[in-house]
Amino acid sequence: MLITEEDVEQVITARVVLDGLRDKLRITVNLEDRYRVLSLVTARMAIQDSCWML
């Protein structure tokens, strides 16, 4: 069986998959305060970098 780009796109845009990933990430981040800080810093840096590129 050949996995196409369309197959991957369908999976990564599926609501069930996105909800599951979001829930698992939220659980992981909330395990430890340091994980939450790292995720917030990373998100802020990504936003700043993307704004700079505009």
Rank of each mutant, 00 (worst) to 15 (best):
M1E: 15
L2M: 14
I3P: 10
I3W: 11
I3F: 13
I3V: 15
I3Y: 13
T4P: 07
E5Y: 12
E5I: 15
E5Q: 14
E6W: 08
E6R: 13
E6V: 13
D7K: 12
V8L: 15
V8G: 14
V8D: 14
V8C: 14
E9V: 14
E9F: 14
Q10R: 15
Q10K: 15
V11K: 13
V11L: 15
I12P: 04
I12M: 15
I12C: 14
I12R: 15
A14S: 09
A14F: 04
A14K: 07
R15I: 10
R15M: 09
R15Y: 05
R15S: 06
R15W: 06
R15N: 07
V16L: 10
V16Q: 10
V17P: 00
V17G: 01
V17K: 01
V17W: 03
L18C: 01
L18E: 01
D19K: 08
D19N: 07
G20W: 00
G20F: 00
G20A: 04
R22T: 04
R22K: 04
D23F: 01
D23T: 05
D23P: 00
D23A: 08
D23I: 03
K24P: 05
L25E: 03
L25C: 05
L25Y: 00
L25T: 00
R26S: 01
R26F: 03
I27Y: 03
I27M: 00
T28K: 00
V29R: 02
V29Q: 05
V29E: 02
N30W: 04
N30A: 07
N30L: 09
N30Q: 07
L31Y: 02
E32P: 00
D33H: 02
D33T: 06
D33R: 05
R34G: 02
Y35V: 06
Y35H: 13
R36H: 08
V37R: 10
V37D: 11
V37H: 06
S39V: 12
S39R: 08
S39N: 11
L40G: 07
L40C: 09
V41P: 04
V41R: 08
T42Y: 07
A43L: 12
A43I: 07
R44I: 12
M45Y: 11
M45I: 12
M45V: 12
M45F: 09
M45P: 05
A46P: 02
A46I: 06
A46M: 09
I47V: 13
Q48R: 08
Q48D: 12
D49W: 02
S50E: 14
S50M: 10
S50G: 07
S50I: 08
S50L: 08
W52Q: 10
M53E: 11
M53N: 09
M53H: 03
M53T: 06
M53A: 12
L54Y: 04
L54P: 04
